[in-house]
Design a binder for these strands. Structure first.
Length: 285
DNA sequence: CCTGGGGGTAGGG
DNA sequence: CCCTACCCCCAGG
């Protein structure tokens, strides 16, 4: 009765994917219990995680339900736990510190459906995760510009032209949502307790009848220690990069400034277009 | 107790 | 009208 339906947010979805990547599929209880993901999934039960994962897997790849007589039976929709070596974290194979937590987990490759030949709208929610992953992995102290983001993601998987077009608006939207921070022309992950708190998010205003323990995410201690080590590592590398980056940024800033003005007009149109079409739509290159 | 699978229902194109 | 997403129920380990 008192269930107006609770749509899954991108944060929850991302946390779930990260959790699966870390713990592996089938460990729903562990994922839900994980202090790193509990803040996002405290209102979801392990059953919900399972169901959501099923839906995501189905959406991403093959349809078994409904009419969808597809002949391709490959395309494993599930990206097991390859336990990809983290890009920047020097020494931490276990539960990530709260740094960029969810974003660091390697999201699976976007399953491409050659038979469809259309830009899959289902990949859209995955793009945000890729963006976070890219920014997190690159770990630039001065932020990452759009070119670097595209470059990073492009190395891993094929990108439709629409992504490049959408990236600007997508980034802008994330900035508006205070998930990203824009400095000059580079983007950084907002450090508002990483993913831990979604203060600006008007989500989950009321609690359900679910349990709301979730008091165990005040984990501090070795988290800070590891964070410090990671930070030191980053600084050393960053020192070198920042010098080179500073010049590049300076140069890029000038060009991007002009581009941004032109771009903003285009983005305005695109945002309207996106909103009109419920945020997701196939964009023809 | 936890997980996997099936089914039902509401909301959006 | 069909399709998608979310949720609930049931059976097995």
């Amino acid at each position: 009765m008192g269930n107006p339906k609770q749509k899954w947010t991108a944060e929850e979805e991302e946390a779930l994917r990260a959790g699966v990547a870390k713990h592996g599929p089938g460990k729903w209880k562990n994922i839900q219990k994980d202090p790193e993901f509990n803040p996002f999934l405290f209102s979801r039960s392990n059953i919900d995680l399972k169901d959501k994962w099923r839906n995501m897997s189905i959406s991403a790849g093959e349809k078994v339900r409904s009419s969808k007589p597809k002949a391709s039976s490959d395309a494993l929709p599930l990206p097991p736990p390859p336990v990809t070596a983290a890009a920047v974290t020097p020494s931490s194979t276990s539960p990530q510190p709260s740094a960029h937590a969810a974003a660091s987990a390697t999201s699976d490759a976007v399953v491409f459906d050659p038979s469809k030949s259309t830009v899959d709208s289902k990949t859209a929610p995955k793009y945000n995760a890729l963006i976070f992953e890219a920014i997190s992995a690159l770990n630039e102290p001065n932020g990452v510009d759009t070119g670097a983001i595209i470059n990073y993601i492009e190395q891993r998987q094929e990108l439709p032209q629409s992504f490049k077009r959408q990236l600007s608006s997508r980034l802008r939207r994330l900035v508006s949502q205070e998930k990203l921070e824009k400095v000059h022309n580079c983007y950084k992950i907002k450090k508002t307790s990483s993913f831990g708190s979604k203060v600006p998010s008007p989500k989950q205003k009321d609690f359900q009848r679910k349990q709301l323990d979730s008091a165990g995410f005040v984990n501090t201690g070795d988290t800070i220690e590891k964070a410090a080590v990671a930070a030191a590592y980053r600084i050393a590398d960053a020192e070198n990069k920042s010098f080179v980056a500073a010049e590049a940024v300076k140069e890029a800033e000038r060009i991007a400034k002009m581009a941004d003005e032109t771009e903003s007009l285009l983005q305005l149109a695109k945002e309207i277009f996106e909103k009109c079409s419920h945020g997701e739509l196939v964009l023809i290159a």
